[in-house]
């Protein structure tokens, strides 16, 4: 609070011309992540010759797929002012459901995939019911799901991981369409439709209104509970979709699939410039955030470091992202006060 007024005072101390022109005041929310991404790409292209190879770009596209799908959904949840920390566990559960149905029970692949999506949607619906109907804080409800879904995966198939995933699915993960890996296309479709719905439709505006002022939306006749429930259900289904891709890429279904996905997705969303307080959102920023996280992980791997270093980098990136976002909001607040 005092920060904002301080910034406003400082902005007011500037000469009038500088205040009016100040380009920093009108930066789009994606600026921070774009800068980080450009610096990371430039640094890696100079230091790691392999980074610019076509194969490496394909790898980055493939690795971004699951997180891209989850982060698109997470953007919606954060836009409503909530958070979902259960997506990674739901990916693990859905992955084992897919494996158990298609391999152990020998169901046809398509039906297994549909059931897998359905299980994801059911998990999301439970989250949504608890949050919207019962009125629990989103972090508590999804914390419970985070714990329960991971343990539920062990109930589905107690023997741990399942290999011999149907070759159709495994091969699909290796195919390309128009020079881009097929799994990346799925993520692109999800992200683009997510962006269009959020920006161009009534439903999207409802989501943003809900996050901006829940009480006002309810009084204007928005069925707040229904919207919230639908969002959590859709995100659960997206977790099921991410599970299909994870299973296809790894060619095994395992209960530990999707560990830390929730953190990567949240990092990507916050990195992309969507404020954690809700009411505003940018899918473009989220996608840039996803690519940044993957590029950083890829860079760490190319530099010959292990997964621990990747975690460290993601943690630091998250902190930087939060700090940049706070700085940008202060600038924006200052420019509003100057204008007024």
């Amino acid at each position: 609070m005092s920060d904002r007024t301080d910034a406003a005072r400082r902005a007011k101390a500037l000469p009038r011309s500088a205040r009016r022109k100040g380009p920093l005041n009108r930066l789009p929310p994606e600026t921070g992540v774009a800068v980080v991404l450009i610096i990371a790409v430039l640094y890696l292209s100079f230091t790691q010759p392999y980074f610019l190879q076509r194969d490496n770009f394909r790898l980055i596209a493939k690795q971004s797929a699951e997180i891209g799908i989850l982060a698109t959904g997470m953007t919606y949840i954060i836009a409503t002012g909530g958070i979902d920390i259960s997506v990674g566990s739901v990916v693990g559960l859905c992955s084992l459901v897919l494996g158990a149905l298609s391999v152990v029970l020998g169901w046809s692949l398509w039906i297994s995939i549909i059931v897998c999506l359905g299980v994801g949607a059911a998990c999301g619906l439970i989250n949504g019911l608890l949050i919207a109907r019962v009125g629990m804080p989103s972090i508590i409800a999804t914390l419970a799901m985070y714990a329960a879904a991971r343990a539920g995966a062990l109930l589905v198939h107690s023997g741990g991981h399942i290999s011999n995933i149907p070759t159709d699915l495994v091969n699909f993960a290796q195919t390309d369409f128009a020079g881009v890996p097929s799994v990346a296309w799925i993520a692109i479709i999800v992200a683009v439709s997510g962006a269009v719905i959020l920006r161009r439709t009534n439903a999207g505006r409802l989501v943003l209104a809900l996050g901006g002022n829940r009480e006002a939306s309810r009084m204007s006749g928005v069925n707040v509970k229904l919207v919230e429930m639908l969002i959590y259900t859709a995100v659960g289904m997206l977790a099921g979709l991410a599970a299909v891709i994870t299973t296809a890429r790894a060619a095994t279904a395992e209960p530990n699939a999707g560990t830390t996905y929730e953190i990567q997705a949240i990092t990507a969303v916050v990195l992309g410039g969507t404020p954690i307080t809700g009411g505003r959102a940018t899918i473009l920023g989220t996608i840039l955030g996803v690519i940044t996280v993957t590029v950083l992980r890829d860079g760490v791997a190319l530099a010959g470091q292990d997964a621990n270093m990747q975690q460290l980098i993601i943690g630091v990136a998250l902190l930087i992202a939060v700090e940049v976002e706070r700085w940008r909001l202060r600038q924006a607040a200052a420019s509003i006060e100057v204008a007024a």
Binding site: A141, A147, R150
Partner: peptide, 15 residues
């Protein structure tokens, strides 16, 4: 590992 189910259940009960 199944403890996660109990954790989930008691968190829900408390909520």
């Amino acid at each position: 590992e199944l403890y996660g189910l109990i954790t989930g259940a008691i968190i829900l009960a408390a909520a």
